[in-house]
């Protein structure tokens, strides 16, 4: 194995069903239902997935949902804004913990 991540492995995702088919079926059925059009369009769901893919830093998901967003009619501006949303939440989550830091520091400081 030259690298942990091989783009070809994404196409082998279904192999995960080999030794636990019932669980895989439940997961993939659920997955398909989640991404079907509902109150949100398939395009909107793909943009959310793209943002989350960046947040969890999954190369497979980034690959899959970049393509999915393009195929559902999103443009690079929208996709970049979605990544910024993920970044803002991740960055904001770090920064808001600064309040804890400040509270602790203030309690300890003269």
């Amino acid at each position: 194995m030259e690298t942990y991540y091989d783009p070809a492995d994404l196409g082998k995702f279904a192999e995960i069903a080999k030794d636990a088919p019932e669980l895989a079926t439940k997961f993939f059925d659920y997955y398909q239902a989640v991404f079907s059009e509902g109150e949100l369009t398939e395009r909107e769901k793909a943009l959310i997935a793209l943002a989350v893919a960046h947040s969890v830093q999954c190369p497979y998901c980034i690959d899959a949902y970049t393509k999915s967003c393009l195929e559902k009619g999103s443009n690079l501006g929208e996709m970049t804004e979605a990544v910024h949303v993920a970044n803002a939440i991740r960055g904001g989550a770090a920064l808001v913990h600064g309040v804890q830091m400040r509270k602790i520091a203030e309690k300890l400081s003269l």
Binding site: T41, E42, L70, E71, K72, G73
Partner: peptide, 17 residues
């Protein structure tokens, strides 16, 4: 037509948008 090497959006959804 898509602006690249990917398939087009579903026609009905694209038309709405």
């Amino acid at each position: 037509n898509p602006s690249g090497a990917f398939l087009p959006a579903a026609q009905q959804a694209a038309e709405r948008r």
